[in-house]
Design a protein around this nucleic acid. Structure first.
Length: 444
RNA sequence: GUGGAAGUAGUUCAAUGGUAGAGCACCAGAUUGUGGAUCUGGCUGUUGCGGGUUCGAGCCCCGUCUUCCACCCCA
């Protein structure tokens, strides 16, 4: 006989850089949050869609060029087609809209929670495979739509139990008007990227860089004046007026922002939003309001929820003009951040609420019938599948964070009673009826 | 993709170029129809992987993989 384990060569179990396994404790929490968000979006009348993980490379790259090219996973499939893993959920959504516009009623409100892939170098909170949670409104260009997305961001964060965050918002259109007023709009991409670094490298560094880009110290200082607040307490509307006049008395975008702020105030949530003109967003398809979300204690983690208005996203795929506004929550980054913060939101997930211990293997059928009765009541019930000594069974319950255990043997079976134990405080309820056990568990 | 630091048991960490270590966790047995105990015993491991230098490498050199950090960009 050949020793099989020795004859067979073992393949080293390993996974790719930036990719991760999720153990039950983490996956249970992630699934719970996703379920909550899905229910939440449905309450706003949003509908779920899905798109393929793999698309034609040309579809995802669009006009191509830029950073996306370098970060996208692409390869030839078995039929020699150029294919790519989706880089975000927004571009496939644009393709989806162009392809199905006749089947959809506008405005169209959709959400999509799924994985995306980027060939970036990983760091803490930055992965090559991660889950995004997108929600968008397409087919309407109005302050009401802009506001609704912001309101949903706010209620989503409240729902997830996250505290100490700040939604930073700005207006790309207003900023572009300002750059045009300064006559440096042809440099806008470089300027946007530099401005974005303000909170990282500081004012002086930004001015130096801007001076090279814009051509004069005067213009660089003007840009800095635009992107910095007079002081931290400057009110939203005062900042807005100042930006408007710096942009030469711009009205259209300013009025939009005023209207959005009005709705936020009426809803009583304006305090969660800061007008931060240094927020610009690198992606060049944004045309209106833009936003990023930082956790107060760890801003270096980067934005955990961002997005904005894009008034011509589907233009690559259709001649029809489809304005939209949307937002994306970085679920994996948010979870990493909460882990870093040791957030109490991340309680250990449990596999079940009740475990039926095995005291007598011969009573298995009875255990199973008990389990069916508990499950009928919606109680997640686990049956221990072999007769092991009790410490081992208790340990099993502990590892899986199960609160209640049913310890029943011949005595209980003969009297059709059960003995229920709270495994946390070790309180025993001996020889009670199943109905009593159910109500104790439900009360917990 | 570029640059820097690190990688030792399941985990937290030790070991001058000279024989693989400690706590916790885990498994088995010792008393069990009720626990986190004690005792005994055990696995704790090709020192991330592959080469090189050396009589001899966890340690020095090269490559590679992964993690973390910075850049780039971003969720």
């Amino acid at each position: 006989m050949i020793d099989e384990t020795k004859a067979r060569s073992i393949i080293e179990p390993k996974i790719l850089k930036g990719f991760r396994d999720f153990l039950p404790s983490m996956e249970i929490q992630k699934k719970a949050i996703i379920t909550k968000l899905e229910e939440h979006f449905s309450l706003y009348g949003f509908v779920p869609i899905n798109t393929p993980v793999l698309e034609y490379t040309e579809v995802l790259l669009g006009k191509g060029g830029g950073e996306t090219d370098k970060q996208i996973f692409h390869f030839k499939d078995n039929g020699d087609r150029d294919v790519a893993l989706r880089f975000d959920l927004t571009v496939p959504f644009a393709r989806f809209l162009a392809q199905h516009q006749n089947e959809l009623a506008l405005p169209f409100k959709r959400f999509h929670i799924d994985k995306v892939w980027r060939g970036e170098n990983p760091q803490k909170g930055r992965f090559r495979e991660f889950t995004q949670c997108d929600f968008d409104i397409v087919g309407v260009d109005s302050a009401e739509a802009d506001y609704e997305i912001l309101a949903m961001m706010d209620s989503s964060f409240a729902l997830m139990g996250v505290s100490d965050y700040q939604f930073c918002i700005a207006h790309r259109g207003l900023f572009n008007a300002f750059l045009a007023h300064l006559e440096v709009e042809e440099k806008s991409v470089d300027i946007l990227r530099t401005v974005d670094k303000l909170r990282k490298i500081g004012e002086q560094e930004v001015v130096d860089l801007l001076q090279n880009i814009a051509g004069s110290e005067e213009k660089a200082k003007n840009i800095l004046r635009y992107i910095t607040k007079e002081d931290a307490s400057e009110p939203f509307l005062a900042t807005l007026e100042r930006l408007s006049s710096l942009a030469g008395g711009e009205e259209e975008h300013t009025n939009r922002m005023k209207a959005i702020y009005h709705y936020l105030s009426e809803a009583g949530i304006e305090g969660h939003f800061t007008l931060d003109p240094s927020i610009t967003r690198g992606l060049d398809y944004y045309t209106g309001i833009v936003y990023e979300t930082f956790l107060t204690e760890i801003p270096h983690f980067g934005s955990v929820c961002s997005g904005g208005r894009y008034n011509d996203l589907a233009s690559l795929y259709t001649k029809e003009k489809l304005p939209g506004v949307g937002s994306s929550i970085g679920l994996d980054r948010l979870l990493s951040a909460l882990e870093e913060l040791k957030s109490p939101i991340l309680k250990d997930g449990s596999s079940a609420e009740l475990v039926i211990f095995c005291l007598e293997e011969s009573l298995y059928s009875w255990y199973d019938s008990l389990a069916r009765q508990f499950r009928k009541q919606g109680i997640r019930t686990d049956v221990y599948l072999q007769q092991k000594k009790m410490p081992a069974q208790f340990k099993y319950a502990q590892t899986n964070n199960i609160v209640f255990g049913l310890t029943c043997g011949k005595e209980e079976h003969d009297q059709n009673r059960v003995t229920l134990k709270n495994l946390i405080n070790r309180e025993m309820h001996s020889m009670i009826t199943i109905e009593e056990a159910i109500s104790i568990i439900k009360r917990n």
